[in-house]
């Protein structure tokens, strides 16, 4: 494991912890898209189908369990927790899941490495992860006033993707058989979706102002 991969995993982990902590301590999910959180739960479920069949490392298994557990907990909080769910703004979070899920599923069925259930599901999870942030970005754009923790959450998620790309570049040069163009394309698309957000995030940070996205 290289430093970029480890840093990427850690920012990913922090992003989830920041979100869980925000929801748990202030009992509010204001500004958080349930649609995005449900898509992530689906991403992790379909990607980690191998969790009990292929052992890679203890680190790998533990991280998978954390991502599965945290994503389902977040969905549970927003849907079921009697205080948290009151802060969920359903009318603003209107992105339709199937606009993303169905095209990704079709793409995964046709464009994959191997036509087996596990492989198609794994590929589907890559495609879906690439676009799963969209409902959240749309919500940020709509609400405009973004609290610090939500801003940090999205920033950490974007940083995780950027670090994974550095990891792939590193692996490409150090591991001769490391070629995986589906991962590459999905990963680059995913990172590009954050470009706009990053721009405004750094602007607000530089000027020491509250983060606001243009209408």
């Amino acid at each position: 494991m290289n430093i970029f991969r480890l840093a990427g995993d850690m920012t990913h982990l922090f992003s989830v912890l920041v979100l869980l902590l925000k929801i748990h301590t202030i009992k509010s999910c204001a500004g958080i898209s349930l649609k995005t959180q449900e898509l992530y739960a689906l991403v992790f479920t379909t990607r980690y189908l191998d969790i009990f069949t292929d052992f890679i490392s203890l680190y790998n298994t533990v991280m998978k369990l954390i991502f599965l557990g945290s994503s389902f907990s977040i969905v549970w909080y927003i849907r079921r927790h009697k205080i948290v769910r009151r802060s969920y703004d359903k009318d603003q979070d209107t992105f339709r899941h199937y606009f993303l899920v169905i095209p990704c599923l079709v793409l995964a069925v046709f464009i994959n490495h191997k036509f087996t259930f596990k492989e198609v599901m794994w590929t589907f999870s890559l495609y879906l992860e690439a676009v799963a942030i969209l409902p959240q970005l749309v919500l940020l754009q709509r609400t405009r006033n973004i609290d610090n923790l939500t801003g940090q959450y999205v920033f950490l998620l974007g940083a995780y993707r950027a670090l994974y790309i550095l990891n792939w570049i590193y692996r490409h040069f150090t591991e001769p058989h490391y070629v995986h163009w589906i991962t590459w394309i999905a990963g680059v698309v995913q990172t590009l979706l954050y470009a706009d957000f990053f721009y405004y995030y750094f602007q607000s940070w530089k000027n020491n102002e509250k983060l606001q996205l243009p209408a």
């Binding site: 990913h12 890679i56 790998n60 991280m63 991502f67 990891n167």
Partner: peptide
């Protein structure tokens, strides 16, 4: 290792 590319990542 015999792990396929990408499968050892999260």
């Amino acid at each position: 290792t015999t792990t396929e590319p990408g499968k050892d990542e999260l």
